[in-house]
């Protein structure tokens, strides 16, 4: 809470210092009053008084996007604070439902599979069409950005040129000459080797399991030439740093995972949805790569600072 308060108020510290104490006192009284009357009352987060609490999952990218959402709302004149690192999807969806947060960034494909495990929607459009009906009452999604963080088949620029690869369909033609690396589950999951086989007819020369979740061991194996293709996430900074090529996936073997805000239906103040939709129309996968890069490795900054820098560079004020 302390970090959030400092973060949201830093640019106008002196004004806020004076106002903060009485406000906080009122806030506590209000909250405790709500709490004692009905602990399950969804209004206790203060959606009614125009303050939006943005939650996030417990990994850096989600925290960055949550900070971006909060910054965008503040830019639109809406009070917003963040509640980072809530946990896995079970936890943060529960937090939206019980009113402890009003808004959380999520990924379209995994969100749909969470609320409807039977869904076979795979393309970005199919998923976005299916989501509103699949979501439980009280939850809604705003417009999705084109920014995606999903599994992908990635090759070096050299390999792409050598075999003229732009998509997994191209890769399938030379599949028997290629060695694929990925996490161990890639051997067995539907989107893994079974999916490449059934959707593209691609059976690689061999598969090398590397158990680091598409991290630096996997990236190194690819750039060093130990393997030809690697299963890594589309927002991995190495894609930009090492000039890697993300192969297109025309058959939607890897279902779309567009970043979008999951929100409590009735608790967003006027103008919040418009501001967030406008922001989502600007956010790209490239932005996510750069933001992830800025919070990892040498000279890294925290998610709040990364978000603030991005907002400043993209014409938002009062982040």
């Amino acid at each position: 809470m302390k970090a959030t308060l400092q973060n949201s108020s830093r640019p106008r510290l002196s004004v806020w210092r004076r106002a903060a104490l009485p406000l906080a006192a009122v806030g506590v009284l209000t909250l405790s009053a709500c709490g004692s009357s009905d602990p399950l009352n969804g209004d206790s987060s203060g959606g009614g008084d125009g303050t939006v609490t943005v939650g996030s999952a417990d990994f850096p990218e989600s925290q960055i996007i949550a900070e971006l959402y909060a910054g965008v709302l503040r830019d639109a004149g809406i009070e917003a604070s963040t509640e980072p690192g809530i946990g896995a999807r079970e936890a943060y969806i529960g937090a939206v439902e019980d009113g402890s947060i009003d808004l959380v960034p999520d990924y379209s494909g995994n969100l749909l599979l969470y609320v409807d495990p039977e869904s076979d929607a795979a393309s970005g459009e199919e998923i976005l069409d299916a989501l509103p009906d699949a979501l439980p009452d009280g939850l809604t999604v705003l417009e999705a950005s084109e920014a995606e963080n999903k599994d992908a088949m990635v090759v070096t620029r050299q390999t792409a040129d050598e075999y003229s690869l732009t998509s997994i369909a191209d890769m399938a033609e030379v599949c028997d000459q290629l060695v694929i690396a990925g996490p161990p589950e890639f051997q067995e999951r539907a989107y893994g080797l079974p999916g490449l086989e059934s959707k593209y007819g691609c059976t690689p020369q061999s598969f090398e399991p590397i158990n680091d979740g598409g991290g630096s061991l996997t990236v190194d194996a690819l750039t060093r030439g130990d393997v030809d293709v690697a299963n890594i996430f589309t927002t991995t900074p190495a894609i930009k740093q090492q000039d890697l090529v993300v192969l297109e996936d025309p058959e939607n073997n890897f279902i779309a995972q567009q970043v979008l805000p999951l929100a409590a239906e009735d608790r967003l103040p006027d103008g919040a949805a418009d501001a967030l939709n406008e922001f989502s129309s600007k956010l790209t996968t490239r932005d996510l790569i750069e933001l992830n890069q800025s919070v990892s490795g040498d000279g890294s900054v925290n998610p709040q600072q990364a978000a603030r820098d991005w907002l400043e560079a993209n014409g938002y004020t009062d982040a």
Binding site: A181, P184, E188, E208, P209, I210, N211, L217, A221
Partner: peptide
């Protein structure tokens, strides 16, 4: 943990 075998394959996979 990396791409080798042994009984750990079952553990990691």
């Amino acid at each position: 943990y990396i791409n080798l075998g042994g009984l750990g394959r079952y553990l990691i996979d």
